[in-house]
Write a protein that binds this DNA or RNA. Sequence first.
DNA 1: TTATTATATTGCAATATTACGATTAAATAT
DNA 2: ATATTTAATCGTAATATTGCAATATAATAA
Lengths: 110, 110
Amino acid sequence: MGLTKTEIFTLEQNQISSIAKVFGHPARVAILQHLFKIDSCICGDLVDEIGLAQPTISQHLKELKKIGLIKGNITGTSICYCIDKENWSKMKTILTVFLDQDIIDSNNCC
Amino acid sequence: MGLTKTEIFTLEQNQISSIAKVFGHPARVAILQHLFKIDSCICGDLVDEIGLAQPTISQHLKELKKIGLIKGNITGTSICYCIDKENWSKMKTILTVFLDQDIIDSNNCC
DNA sequence: TTATTATATTGCAATATTACGATTAAATAT
DNA sequence: ATATTTAATCGTAATATTGCAATATAATAA
């Protein structure tokens, strides 16, 4: 065990949880916020900015890249990361549909 | 290790990631969707509905309760669960601020 | 070529999560 | 009192995640 039973859930449920999982670590939230804040691309000072070791940041970047929220651009020895705006927008739509559900205000027991 | 360094992040970053973490499992997404769909409270048929063992569902409910997204109401031998609308709304605000960030469309390298 | 710089990968230890069988607890029914 | 029903808790196995030191890789500089 320790293995999520993905196959018993809908595509939508798996999509929502996959996206949310990536947001489920403060370092990844911090990275994304920083990429949004800087109006140009950030070229690797995330390690100083956030305060985790370089391999750790690299690992978090990998997960953000894997799900498509950021993309990197090689410039010399460094890599420029930025938000993938198109995918960010798609992701936002998926999450917003979930968050904007609303309850019929009747027959509630609590 | 294996331990998130909460102390180096802002309250907001930790709040966002805590909420997202709870959404980071399809079973919890499914539970929330079901509680939204049913106009009255569901009283424990979540086990049949979702297809995980009773202790597993109970564990997921506990996490949803811990963060305040649902609340339970004892009626006889069963328990009625429903969305905590006030907290859902608060949570939505926190996440929406994060999701609605936008990039100044300049100086981007990628 | 030989540094230097920047990032990725590997390997590993510590901790967390997921899932469920077995059991317990608490309320109702007989 | 004794079942029955429903949900929580305990214990445990399997897997995942987090974090970092060490190392590798890849591009540029000297």
